[in-house]
Computed example of a mutant assay.
Amino acid sequence: MTDELAGKVAIVTGGASGIGRGIAERFAAEGAGVVIADVRDDLGAELVDKLNSAGHRTTYRHTDVGDQTQVGELVASAVSAFGGLHVMVNNAGISSPLRKGLFAEDFEEFDRVMRVNLLGVMAGTREAARHMADNGGGSIINLGSIGGIQAGGGVSTYRASKAAIIHFSKCAAIELAHYEVRVNCLAPGNIPTPILATSATDEDRERLERFEARIRQQMRDDRPLKREGTAEDVAEAALYLATARSRYVTGTVLPVDGGTVAGKVMVRKSDRASD
């Protein structure tokens, strides 16, 4: 590690597991003071204990990002604990339930998904920017998804929330550039995390393992790079956007997806011959 974030303070929402955990671990290893925000208190406390035992500077705060008051308190707690805020990673998110086609969709989870996924990002961006604007600027990194770039069937509310995050991030980047606050969006794809499990409805629970295996295989088939993506890959991209290496980068959407949204996989002659 190169201590690229030495002296910096970062917040990572949804930081107790999955992609958020990977980002929190990488930022801490690079010297940042990290506030890990989540609703999974057990996982958050375990991660803080692990990182602090290794000599890093982290703290945990229970935060429902869909509650604007809690998001404001989260930012205030980071400033109080570490003396400032330089990087805000709005990562917390949930999936909408998987239904058997749009006709069967009742949008029962619409308000909850939009509150966590979209409002959480909007409030996190606003609260972080208020501090950053008065303190020399900073970097805000919002987590979208290739599901917000590339259309597809299923989990339509989730896809809509991620598409909205991407557009909001671009709008915020324009408005906040005057204050030297950069806003960028990461769009992960094909990264194994626990979020896919939240898309299963109760009646699908017993079939979740088979369903997930089928979806993961389809993702592999659609991905030009054959290496599996990891939370660490997303954390590497987040680190770039968090540091001065990206000081002239704002309003961008960076897919971290093994090339999935770039286009269809080419079938080689050798592949055809083996069929």
Rank of each mutant, 00 (worst) to 15 (best):
L85R: 04
L85E: 09
H86R: 00
H86F: 07
V87Q: 04
V87W: 10
N91E: 11
A92G: 02
G93N: 02
I94P: 01
I94K: 02
S95F: 15
S95D: 15
S96V: 05
L98S: 09
K100M: 08
K100F: 11
K100Q: 13
G101Y: 08
G101L: 07
G101E: 08
L102F: 14
L102N: 02
F103R: 14
F103Y: 04
F103P: 00
A104C: 03
E105H: 03
E105W: 02
D106M: 01
D106Y: 01
D106A: 03
F107R: 12
F107A: 05
F107S: 07
E108P: 00
E108S: 12
E108D: 11
E108M: 02
E109I: 00
E109C: 04
E109P: 00
F110V: 15
D111P: 06
R112F: 15
R112M: 09
R112A: 06
V113W: 08
V113H: 11
V113Y: 06
M114R: 05
M114A: 10
R115T: 11
R115H: 08
R115P: 07
R115F: 05
V116K: 03
N117R: 02
N117P: 10
L118Q: 06
L118S: 00
L119G: 00
L119A: 13
L119P: 00
L119C: 13
G120T: 14
G120V: 14
V121L: 00
V121I: 13
V121Y: 02
V121E: 05
V121A: 13
